[in-house]
Design a protein around this nucleic acid. Sequence first.
DNA 1: AGCACA
Length: 349
Amino acid sequence: MLLKKISGVLSGFQTIGIVHRNCSPIKQIGEDEKKQSVIPMAGVGPPHYASWPPPAGHSAPPMADIDEVRTIFILGFPPDVKERELQNLLRWWPGYEACQMNFKGEQPMGFALFTSAAAAMAAKDALQNLVFDPETNSVLRAEMAKKNLYVKRGVTGVGTETAPFDQSKRLRTASDYSTSHYAPPGAFAPPPSWMPQSYMPPGGSFDPYTGYGMPPLQPVAQPMVSPVAPAGYMPMQNTKDNPPCNTLFVGNLGESTSEGELRSIFSGQPGFRQMKVLRQGRSTVCFIEFADVNSAIAVHNTLQGAIVTSSDRGGMRLQYSKNPYGRKKEFVNNNQDGAPGVPTSETSG
DNA sequence: AGCACA
């Protein structure tokens, strides 16, 4: 039965440890809630969306393996999110089929079904760290689900213009969202953050000359995955910083700073790759590598001035490293005369 | 203010 399936999906995620702000881990859903509506995909995509597959009926969506998981699981919505919002967020995504918002736990949980695992993964990556609502500091976290979202037969699929199978349950169907009544051309476009995987840090932009203004006393959007949060925050004036890169330099740490605490704070951050702690006499510094510059920027902004309990200084100072990981000290040897070459800019984009 | 490792 439906409820069984859903609770199976949910229980698969209980160990993931996604804790969004002060929300506790997902609870098992109760046995009470019976009405689970699934919103299937609208039939036609917007004309301006280049990568959208041709309209229904002209070509079939990529065929999915019979039991590959092509459902994603999304957390981080504000408590007042509507299922409709999820539908509108996803409806232009290539391969999107249906979604469901589950309000059983401490926080709303979204599930979205796609035509293939690849489409699901692409959507998952695109939604990852998406600022869903700056007002409530809602940052989305997305994972592949353990099981597929259950959709009643016949209603799934692009171009299936079938009638609602259950009018009484307020099910939104393709016809309710038909493009002729909705989304006049150009009026509704996918969020720009869908194109590259980009996380817009909430804290303002980097100015190499003035640096950052006063960092927030408490973190703004925290894409916290780590269960370990800093003890608090201290204002931190970052006098001089370097241009953003994939590596953070952590300063203002006392000699007593424990590597374990640093690791527990940073290793759960999205994009974390590795860190290295350096003891230098009375103080300690630390380098943290991230998978990409955006992840580093996010942490630079959200954890600036965070108080490391094991340190006897104030908050830690986060700066971009002068010498980031992955940036080789090698030179491009494109001149034959032996003159010094130009440092390679980046090894990764 | 302290920037290593490839």
